[in-house]
Each structure stands twice: as structure tokens, then as C-alpha cells.
Design a binder for these strands. Structure first.
Length: 360
DNA sequence: AACTCGGGGCA
DNA sequence: TGCCCAGAGTT
């Protein structure tokens, strides 16, 4: 215990603060690896308030790992709908099946073994190992990076190879090896509640006397990060056929890109804008004769994409046939209730245009 | 090491 | 707008 330049009192003060100030969260009532794993995957790049209802839904629908392992991907993606980063849901199911059917339901118990699971990276492996099994490994997430960068004034960008190593070492040095579960959660809670990105509450920080950035009044300069790539524009043109008042045509996305294995209306994606006059002949080629009822536009912003979506609601003159692949008929009611839809599509479904041309 | 993958909330 | 969020997988 005790490394050069590191105060051994940090973890003790941190954990004392945590016991008084920690928020109540459903996954904090247990150490079951299944529930800890589920909560950690849900919380990847997701705020607690946003993820909590999804955790409740999943536990209610799949109380055990076996229940999840036996579920269909359609059902899991439908439950995940709206949360984003859908590969998390696909990998979650893959790993549930792997543990249940290949590992005979025995959850891996060490950081090293957990790291092998699909969808479980360094952070999640450390979280499960420490919280469920008390293994002395330090978690390093966005919160921990912020706390540590300010505590020690680390100028190395955390998203560089060198920085990653530095932050891992620092996090491990201040870890209380006897209380890894409490310590790790306390670090993240401090980053979330006190050591916030914009207006940190340094007056009420239990580690204020240790903080080098606070001492020099440069807290907001940390953490240092490499610039990320800017977002690209995309133009998504959807064809929304009205077969009768209740039916339409949809497709399942199969490519290894955005919204994989989820459902949308037939889509023509482009990096350039496609004007209506130019697009109409394309629709006619694939769907036969039709009448355009309505064209509505939605701008959908993602972290790395700006999608300019155009929905062409059309009444088909011929029956629901298409030359496009993988197109099939579905009732609107069933589409909304059972098919996993990207937020962009549910936004459109909630719009007035849909209620005018479809009867629910 | 850089890119991809979502969606919501905040100043 | 830009940034952040209990990140991971692919190229």
C-alpha cells in the first residue's frame, strides 16, 4: 500500500463521502453478476437517468440470464429501442447465450475472463470484477478520467495511447485494494455529482485539499482530450407506401452499419441531397405507379452524423410489390408494437402526417 | 490510431 | 452548436 506521491487518505475520504451522498439505484441492491453486467452495458455512454428505466424493463422481462439467453433478437432490440448504440443489445444477447449454453450458465469471475466476453471491454470487465467479485481492479470511465485528470493535473490527452496508460496507472494507485467495489463506485459518483464537466462543485468536494487543478484554479482545463472527428451529413430518403388504411411496407437493415437488424421503411441513402423530381422516377421503378400523398422532412442529429430524412408517403396503384430486396408487408399497429424502430422512425410515426394517412 | 455506432440533455 | 454520458468493436 502507498505509492510515491499518492496520498493514502484519498480513498478513505472518497468512500466516506460516497456513503453519505450516493444515489439510490436499482443495481446497487445486489452483487449478482447478471444484473451488474446488464446495468454496466446499459450505462455505457448513457446517463443514469436515461438508462434506469431500461434496466427495470430488462429485469422485469428477463429476471435471469437464462431468460435473456432464450429470448429472440427481435424482442431484445425492441426492448432496447430508443437507447442507441444497438450493438450493445446484440452483443448482450450473444454473450447471454454464450454463458448460458457454452459455459453452462456459470458467469466468468475474473477481470481477465470477463474481458473475453463480446461487448465487455476494459471498463465493464473491471466494473463487474470489482463490484460482483471484489477483485482489486480500477474502473476508468469518463467520470474517473475527469476526477483523476484534475486531481493530478494530467496534461496527456486521455484518448491517446500514452494517456490511457497513465490514467489506468493513476486509477489503480489510488484504488483501495480492500474495498474495490465501494471505491470504484465512489469515484464515478464523485465525477457525476461533484467533479462535473461544466460547473464542478469544488466547495463540497471531499478531495479538494488533494486537487492540484483546484490549487492552481485551472479545474476547467481538465481533462485534456484529442479533437474528435466532425459529423458528416447524410441524406436518407424513405418511401412510406400506403397499401390501405392499415398496411405499409418495411425492410430489415442487414448491413454492418447503423441500426443493424432493426426495421425501417424502404430506404435510399445518399451522401448528396436527392431532389424530389429526381427521386420520383426511382420510386416508380421499384414500386410501380403511385400517387404522392405527402413529403415530410425530419432532421435527425447523432453524435457523428446529421441525417436529413425525407419521408415520401405514397399511395400505391398496384398491390404491395417491390423490386427492392427484403421488403415485406406489415400492419401499422404491429409495426409500432413489435418491430424495433430507430428513433428517427418513431419520430416520424408520431407526426401528424402518419395519423392522417394511416388509421391506427 | 482513427472511425463507427445513438440518443438525450445541457449551456 | 458543441460537449458529455458507468465504451466497445472494427479498420
Amino acid at each position: 500500500m502507498g505509492k510515491i506521491g499518492i496520498d493514502e487518505g484519498i480513498s478513505e475520504k472518497l468512500r466516506a463521502w460516497y456513503e453519505i451522498n450516493k444515489r439510490s439505484m436499482p443495481w446497487r441492491l445486489t452483487q449478482e453478476p447478471y444484473k451488474i453486467w446488464l446495468s454496466e452495458v446499459i450505462l455505457q455512454q448513457t446517463q443514469v437517468v436515461q438508462g434506469t428505466p431500461y434496466f427495470e424493463k430488462f429485469i422485469s422481462e428477463f429476471p435471469t440470464l437464462k431468460d435473456l439467453a432464450e429470448a429472440s433478437e427481435d424482442k431484445v432490440l425492441k426492448l432496447w429501442q430508443g437507447l442507441g448504440y444497438y450493438s450493445r443489445a446484440r452483443n448482450l444477447l450473444y454473450t447471454a447465450r454464450f454463458i448460458h449454453f457454452e459455459l453452462m450458465g456459470v458467469f466468468p469471475k475474473t477481470y481477465f475472463e470477463l474481458l473475453k466476453l463480446k461487448g465487455v471491454g476494459e471498463y465493464t470487465a473491471a466494473a463487474i470484477a470489482s463490484i460482483s467479485y471484489n477483485e482489486p481492479v480500477a474502473v476508468v470511465d469518463g467520470n474517473v478520467i475527469r476526477v483523476i485528470s484534475r486531481l493530478f493535473k494530467i496534461d496527456e490527452p486521455f484518448n491517446s495511447g500514452k494517456g490511457k496508460k497513465l490514467f489506468n496507472e493513476a486509477a489503480y494507485q489510488i484504488l483501495d485494494k480492500n474495498q474495490p467495489a465501494q471505491h470504484n463506485q465512489a469515484m464515478m459518483e464523485l465525477g457525476s455529482l461533484v467533479c462535473r464537466p461544466q460547473n464542478p462543485d469544488c466547495n463540497n468536494c471531499p478531495l479538494a485539499e488533494h486537487c492540484l487543478a483546484l490549487k492552481d484554479k485551472v479545474v476547467l482545463n481538465y481533462p485534456v482530450k484529442l479533437k474528435k472527428t466532425s459529423s458528416k451529413k447524410l441524406y436518407f430518403n424513405f418511401v412510406v407506401p400506403v397499401l390501405d388504411d392499415r398496411k405499409t411496407l418495411i425492410t430489415k437493415r442487414t448491413g454492418n452499419d447503423i441500426w443493424k437488424n432493426m426495421y425501417t421503411f424502404p430506404l435510399y441513402a445518399s451522401e448528396e441531397e436527392i431532389k424530389e423530381m429526381k427521386f420520383i422516377p426511382t420510386i416508380r421503378e421499384d414500386f410501380g405507379d403511385f400517387e404522392v400523398m405527402k413529403v415530410s422532412k425530419i432532421k435527425h442529429i447523432l453524435s457523428h452524423r446529421v441525417i436529413h430524412a425525407t419521408f415520401y408517403i405514397i399511395a400505391l396503384k398496384e398491390s404491395g410489390q417491390s423490386k427492392k430486396n427484403n421488403i415485406f408487408e406489415v400492419e401499422i399497429n404491429r409495426l409500432v408494437e413489435f418491430y424495433s424502430l430507430p428513433r428517427l422512425i418513431t419520430k416520424f410515426m408520431e407526426s401528424k402526417d402518419v395519423s392522417i394517412y394511416f388509421i391506427k
